[in-house]
Design a protein around this nucleic acid. Sequence first.
DNA 1: GTGAAAGCGCTAACAT
DNA 2: ATGTTAGCGCTTTCAC
Lengths: 344, 344
Amino acid sequence: VTLKAVAQAAGVHVSTASRAINPRTRHLVADELAERILAAAQDLGYRPDPLAAGLRTGRSHLVGIVVPDIANPVFAPILAGLQRALAEAGFAVLVANAPSAAEAAAVVDGLAAQRVEGMVLATAGRRDLAVDRCVETGIPTVLVNRGEDRNRLPTVVSDDRAGMRLAVDHLVALGHRAIGHVAGPADVSTGHLRRRGFEEAMRDVDLDPRAVTVADGYTRAAGRAAAAALLAAHPGLTAIAAANDLLALGAYEALREVGLECPRDVSVVGHNDMPLVDLVSPALTTVRIGHAELGREAAQILVRRMERPDAPVGSVVLTPELVVRGSTASPARATVRAARRAAG
Amino acid sequence: VTLKAVAQAAGVHVSTASRAINPRTRHLVADELAERILAAAQDLGYRPDPLAAGLRTGRSHLVGIVVPDIANPVFAPILAGLQRALAEAGFAVLVANAPSAAEAAAVVDGLAAQRVEGMVLATAGRRDLAVDRCVETGIPTVLVNRGEDRNRLPTVVSDDRAGMRLAVDHLVALGHRAIGHVAGPADVSTGHLRRRGFEEAMRDVDLDPRAVTVADGYTRAAGRAAAAALLAAHPGLTAIAAANDLLALGAYEALREVGLECPRDVSVVGHNDMPLVDLVSPALTTVRIGHAELGREAAQILVRRMERPDAPVGSVVLTPELVVRGSTASPARATVRAARRAAG
DNA sequence: GTGAAAGCGCTAACAT
DNA sequence: ATGTTAGCGCTTTCAC
């Protein structure tokens, strides 16, 4: 059932029907006539074809979203926030998975071919091919969760350095002094900035910030390996601040393997507060990021930029929050044991 | 840069260019000429416009996916599996969130308006408005994870009854006899069938299947409430088989609240094996469903039906698998305590 | 205020 | 083997 059919049923020309149907142009047609047309449309069950309209107006009402791993629970709330906010603004969401940087670039090309009006990348590395492609094509794009070094695009992230500072300050307040960091990949902004945040916070309280190992991915396995290396290199450690929750859970495993107990021997702090980390044992103390809000904010900025592509490239930095649970404790006994370990 | 531009650059007519560009019609044009056209296209950086092509051919290369909650980790692997398989078949994925049945129906209409060529619903209730709409519109649709009673659409699900049987048999083998069930919503196939599976499995070993409470949603909070009610009504219980993992985790909370310990006092089995349940404490014994495979299978069936809408309405039932972890144990001491609770 | 006509970018009869 | 023509469903000038 097409617009032509509606026009015929109402006894008017298609163009008149078009004007009546579209709220933005309805005032151009006589009220009474408009009503008749609308009634006919309703009657026939007419649904406008956005593809055809888009062909004419150059719009697709589509937004592409690229995530590194749909199956990763962290991205679910971001996606949900984006999806809801974009749906409200009248955009449908095209979701694409891109586990690697090369794939992300290919996916961006694919989305561009689909004539998306805007994109959201949750995959950005600090130097990123996919971001380059977005900038080249000129399609309005916003980065979420991770930024790029050159800051060419609007970005919505959590304050990663402040988050790490929260973690370190909490541990210091508990009395820890020998604190290590399991860092995320250095080529991703979160890995880089959280490490910087750790080092700055440590220096600010005159503590040695050099106990750091870098995990080669945000996975439990990588966290296990990195934490094991960290503990081996610095046996005196009483606390570990990890760059994210999965790394922290990997650290749990590493501790267990060498017969250490959390938090009795070593305290652990994560980052993200992803689903279920309140139920692991011990319940993970972590830095909470409002992922859904990240998505909502990104959607808002994107909508603004799609409407006016020359809008300023503003970025949003959300303030994270510390959530204290069972994985951190005072090092009272821990220091004694740690000293013994370091000695022996 | 349009096809016309390419044609001009190559000194041919648009239709010839079109034929040369499309692999399916390339054989209609002289090899040498085709090469020249392709070169020109490459040169100008031509990208075909699928919207325009679709308008003519009546195709959108879009598939809609409706999930009840993107933020729920269970749906992430299903989505990932669908997305990957559909991308391979040349379809882009439109993801929509529909927390309620009414919203799902609205979302289906929206996707139909977007001219999607097929749909996947992970939201189906046993009687479902959204499913009705799909059947009416005639858009090829497949149901995943949840079926509907009337079985009008191809469906890809796990064998829910067999899964519950796995859980019950495991508990019975450990020596449990007083086993309760925290059921999922009765208007969703998984809730209904898993309850049936529980009851059948219990009867088959001559056990009383009547210790059941129904949670009013697949959430931890609902599980907590339902498990608390179950324990209050049946203080002699030594084991709980929950209809899904979130309900099981809710049961953990309920047990803790009344000072019971899992698995010492009461064993708990979940259903789904969703991400991270191996890390909670105690690690959850559960029935694993191959969610990614669910998604892949659904994608395959959908593609087949989109190609030939008259293809048979076959359904796929995947066999689940028991994963034994730390939340189940022999009731040796539990029975004594349970008897004491029941008595006092 | 309404109708006529053109055209968005592409494909598919039809003609040569 | 290539060009001509028409048209997918809609919007938007331009007339009247």
